[in-house]
Nucleic acid binder design. Structure first.
Length: 804
RNA sequence: GCCGGAGUGGCGGAAUCGGCAGACGCUCAGGACUUAAAAUCCUGUGGGAGCAUUCUCGUGCGGGUUCAAGUCCCGCCUCCGGCACCA
């Protein structure tokens, strides 16, 4: 009688052994084929590990462990994305310095991750708050700055009134702060911006060259939001000046009956002396300014606006004089901040025209513009449009653009929804921006030899009331000399956003201690690109796009050797509470992974998280499901009690074993560990039914289960006296010829209905099978008195007879 | 509104190329062991009919293709995710 399954002792023991023998270290330059698997490094929050974390980690740990057994040199690294708001907010609340909080949180996370037995190469651990790390984050920023891709701009930004910090558009979700849920208002700030828009086309095009799951590609391409159209000049009547608009429908220009410009448009001030109702216009402008983007876009679908009395434009298509309005439905941040309004064929313009009683002209036939805008580009035919009459929409667009370009009135243009990346944070806990401002020289980068520019220590890390960074209070630190002219200069007090450190961490993993470069060429050539990156859908439009942008920039400058950082991207579903709702403290449905490890063990937690369901979909937690997996591992452990000798699989298990190897191998590699585990559970049921498992069978079984439940399998491996460590045993192989039983079951259908299942030799001919069917009275009864019309035999699968 | 994804037992889910729908697990019911309970083991578990060999219906809804449809085609419905006054 073997001893009971003492998972606590077993797991502790094997984690120590793995640490001692350093078996998961990746070797740069190894002869073995390389495999770089990446999970999103965690933000070490005060809450500790969530049961959501182990789902993707375990999935790629399984692949890593299997690939090592298959002879690959696997890099499976881990690190900490440790700068950022939650830590800083907690520091402000408690008065504890963020550096200390970060250190403690990392320690806690590390201990938790270690308890789960992941095969991380801990010697390559990175930490974005480590000066040795952020030296290179700053260095990359300097390269961007030197390349003219970083610029400072007065910009109305989203400002969280609770965090007192500027947010990127991506961080505002449904009008509130993504992190704290606080109210977001518009505030003009002088911000550092990164020109990601210069890479928009390439970020879109190169999606064709990478193996990303479809929904990631679509979301990225939606976010980039490419459109084709034209910039068109509308001359101001009586002025030697033109209002430039962007339109995707130049074909409808003859239907443009008025123009609308954004309240922030510079023409409002430029022509204020000509605008007779400037007071009214200004009042509208002031009212708009007070609104948040949320109020402007989500709340107010009703059209408002003011006519600019005394200022008119000329429609270049027909030379008609048309009025100009300001309205908040036109956004300064898209296109040119001005539009030509075609109420007949644009719903927003139609609504506005109705509200202000403006003329609506039909220029594309097919609908009824009295009832609503007609926007079908497929079927419409141009009317009331001079030279365009009779053309389809596509033909008219081409002809109009050609005409505009010829007359020098406009130009074809591609436009993107993607906007430049707001890179400044008025916060303490981030990488200092390594620039100084000199009255004489302007913004000057500090010398690269000065990097890292250390984040100065201060106990006053509370944001200032004006919304400046706490660094603004540190006069000694701010005051410096200009690297260019030697005169007095001041340091930038904004810090970088959390997205900075995570935009390149996968590069640092390949050579984490290099002080001369982000990583050596040798490491770069050996490891890049990342073969497989798994992460959450919530990072599809932010982190993934930003890091692809940085990587492309570094590639252009020759600092990295691939134009895309990640060859493959997959995504995991969320783990929900038992009540099918998102896990949260307030809902009281949070499961703590530590408690599961304590009560059931790490192997149970890992295996359960894989067994919970389809990896890509959200799945509710089930404590009974956890118990079911624990029961399975108990049964595995007890199999030791009936192990028999045998160097070969026993005859009755031959097919099942080979099939299991095939299926489990395929499943692990394709994020289908749930069915791999189901297969292994079936095997265990078979062994229990026989009350026996032989040495050859349990050897293979342990190897197959090892990636998912590494501790228990190593332990049994050793108990049974098998050689060496299981984690570097060679992955089992299956024999194609042994995937089919000698005797197979063939279902027999008559007129599409299943009438029986017969046993036949696996190589039996159709005639032989037919004979067996005729001899089977239950089945042949259905053939009596009927004429056989058709017979189909799909070898090994099904036998179908059609009768009349 | 636009773009993706998905609808299968009481539940999580499986069915990899059009070939036995419901693997595996949970739940539940019955039984064994036990003084008893827990644990463990065994049996059953989509609906309906029947003592039963069995028959019949069944993968969101309505059609279609096929010897054969969860899977392919056409038309809908619902849910989830992303984007959205983007000109």
């Amino acid at each position: 009688m073997a001893k009971a399954y003492d998972f606590k002792a077993i797991e502790k023991k094997w984690q120590e052994i793995w640490d001692d023998v350093q078996c998961f270290k990746a070797e740069t330059g190894s002869e073995k084929p390389k495999a770089y698997y990446l999970i999103e490094f965690p933000y070490p929050s005060g809450q500790g590990l969530h049961v959501g974390h182990p789902r993707p980690y375990t999935a790629l740990d399984i692949v890593s462990r299997m690939k090592r057994m298959q002879g690959h040199n696997v890099l499976f690294p881990i690190g900490w994305d440790a700068f950022g708001l939650p830590t800083e907010n907690y520091a402000i609340k408690t008065g504890i310095h963020p550096a200390i909080i970060t250190k403690n949180n990392i320690e806690h996370f590390k201990q938790q991750l270690k308890s789960l037995g992941y095969s991380f190469d801990w010697s390559r651990e990175v930490n974005t708050t480590d000066p040795g790390y952020y030296k290179w984050t700053q260095w990359i920023f300097l390269q961007l700055f030197k390349a003219g891709l970083a610029y400072k701009k007065e910009f109305p930004i989203n400002f969280c009134t609770s965090c007192k910090v500027g947010l990127a558009n991506e961080e505002v979700v449904n009008g509130v702060c993504e992190r704290c849920g606080g109210e977001v208002i518009r505030k003009t700030k002088n911000q550092w911006m990164l020109k990601i828009t210069e890479y928009a086309q390439r970020l879109l095009d190169d999606l064709d060259n990478v193996n990303f799951i479809e929904r990631v590609k679509t979301q990225q391409s939606n976010w980039i939001g490419r459109s084709e159209g034209a910039d068109v000049d509308f001359h101001l009547n009586g002025h030697n000046d033109a209002l430039s608009v962007y339109t995707t429908r130049p074909d409808t220009m003859f239907g443009a009956t008025y123009m609308v410009i954004s309240p922030e448009h510079p023409f409002v001030d430029k022509y204020k002396d000509y605008i007779k109702n400037f007071e009214e216009v200004n009042a509208y402008r002031a009212a708009t300014e007070k609104k948040s983007d949320f109020e402007r876009t989500e709340m107010a679908k009703d059209k408002t606006g003011v006519k600019l009395e005394g200022l008119n434009a000329v429609n270049p298509a027909n030379n008609k004089i048309i009025p100009i309005y300001i309205s908040d439905y036109v956004l300064m941040s898209y296109g040119t901040g001005a539009i030509m309004a075609v109420p007949g064929h644009d719903e927003r313009d139609w609504d506005f025209a109705k509200a202000f009683n403006l003329p609506i002209i039909e220029v594309v036939k097919g609908g009824d513009v009295a009832v609503g805008a007609y926007t079908d580009c497929e079927k419409g035919v141009l009317v009331n449009s001079g030279m365009l009459n009779g053309l389809s929409v596509d033909e008219a667009i081409a002809k109009m653009i050609a005409w505009l370009e010829e007359k020098n009135l406009g130009k074809k243009r591609v436009n993107f929804k993607l906007r430049d990346w707001v890179f400044s944070r008025q916060r303490y806990w981030g990488e200092p921006i390594p620039l100084v401002y000199c009255e004489k020289c302007g913004w000057v980068p500090i010398d690269e030899s000065e990097l890292p520019l250390l984040l100065p220590h201060t106990d006053n890390f509370i944001p200032t009331e004006s919304g400046e960074s706490p660094l603004a209070n540190l006069k000694d630190w701010i005051n410096t000399t200009c690297p260019k002219c030697g005169g007095a200069a001041e340091r930038e007090t904004d810090t970088m956003p959390q997205w900075a450190g995570s935009s390149w961490y996968f590069i640092r993993y390949i050579d984490p201690d290099n002080d001369e470069a982000m990583a050596s060429d040798e490491a770069m050539n050996y490891w890049m690109p990342v073969d497989w990156y798994n992460g959450g859908m919530e990072h599809t439009t932010l982190h993934l796009l930003y890091s692809r942008f940085w990587h492309k920039f570094l590639y252009d400058k020759g600092y990295v050797n691939t134009s895309e950082p990640y060859a493959k991207r997959t995504s995991h579903g969320m783990i929900l509470g038992e009540n099918n709702e998102k896990m949260s403290k307030s809902r009281g449905n949070v499961i703590n992974p530590d408690e599961i490890v304590l009560e059931y063990g790490a192997d149970t937690l890992r295996t359960y998280e894989m067994f919970i369901g389809d990896f890509e979909k959200a799945a509710p937690w089930s404590m009974n499901g956890v118990k079911g997996v624990k029961r399975f591992l108990d049964r595995v452990y007890r199999m030791q009690e009936f192990v028999a000798g045998g160097d070969e699989y026993s005859q009755d298990m031959m097919t099942a074993m080979h099939k299991a190897i095939q299926k489990v191998t395929y499943d692990y590699e394709n994020l289908k560990a749930n069915t791999a585990i189901a297969t292994l559970m079936s095997l265990v049921n078979d062994f229990y039914n026989k009350n026996q498992i032989n040495k050859a069978e349990i050897k293979t079984f342990l190897m197959l289960l090892n990636p998912s439940a590494p501790h228990i399998t190593e332990e049994i491996w050793k108990n049974l006296g098998f050689k060496g460590y299981l984690h570097n045993a060679p992955w089992p192989k299956y024999d194609e010829a042994k995937l089919i039983d000698d005797v197979i079951q063939i279902p027999v259908q008559i007129n599409g209905k299943l009438r029986g299942v017969i046993d036949a030799d696996k190589d039996a001919t159709q005639e032989e099978i037919k004979q067996i069917i005729i001899e089977n009275k239950n089945i042949s009864a259905f053939l009596e008195g009927k004429t056989v019309v058709k017979e189909i035999y799909v070898p090994g699968k099904i036998y179908t007879i059609v009768v009349k």
